[in-house]
């Protein structure tokens, strides 16, 4: 067992437990904290896959900006514990098992489709920030500019939606 092995299983476990906790917790703040945990452990997994820049962006934008917005809104609205409603019987006895079967099936197919001798060696591929910058401003220039416009529209939309009614 190498250090990478331990790192993968530890952070994969943390991510899955965090995701489970997101569903099980009844208070939105607790759910938000579990989601931040999932995002942080995913950032470590990105590092293991050699994507340094994406790992940093994941923390800065997702955990540091988007989730702060969520926590902020939860605080401002003073959202309390969520009221549970019981599932319909069909969903409970047919839906959930079927979903589990489907998930296992997907996992099995993925496991078979990718030869298990294809190992992840972090040193082999580095998502150098330089390469990402070159691709963004070369091959993907148009989508990049379009996302800039998208952000602007979202900005205006958020301000218009959330402002007090005149």
């Amino acid at each position: 067992m190498s250090a990478e092995h331990w790192l993968f299983f530890f952070f994969a476990g943390v991510a899955v437990l965090g995701a489970l906790n997101l569903i099980l917790q009844r208070h939105p703040i607790h759910s938000a904290l579990s989601l931040i945990l999932v995002m942080a452990s995913l950032a470590v997994l990105y590092l293991l896959l050699g994507a340094e820049f994406i790992a940093a962006i994941q923390i800065i934008v997702y955990a540091g900006a988007i989730m702060v917005l969520f926590v902020f809104v939860i605080m401002v609205l003073n959202a309390g514990e969520e009221e549970r409603t019981s599932l319909s019987r069909v969903a409970k006895f047919v839906g959930l098992p079927l979903a589990a079967v489907f998930l296992v099936e997907v996992c099995y197919v993925l496991y078979r489709a990718w030869p298990s001798e294809q190992m992840v060696v972090p040193e082999r591929f580095l998502g150098r920030t330089e390469a990402i910058g070159k691709a963004l401003y070369g091959e993907f220039l148009l989508p990049f500019e379009l996302t800039a416009i998208l952000i602007l529209i979202a900005l205006v939309g958020a301000v218009v939606l959330a402002q007090k009614e005149p």
Binding site: E4, E82, A99, W114
Partner: peptide, 30 residues
């Protein structure tokens, strides 16, 4: 000893499944 790539994809599938589950089960809009 390194980790096979398929493990990462399986983890991704599991997380996506949990996301769908949460989307269907949760009642709080946030």
């Amino acid at each position: 000893m390194h980790v096979p790539l398929s493990y990462y994809l399986i983890l991704s599938a599991i997380l996506f499944g949990l996301g769908v589950l949460g989307f269907l089960l949760k009642r709080n809009i946030i």
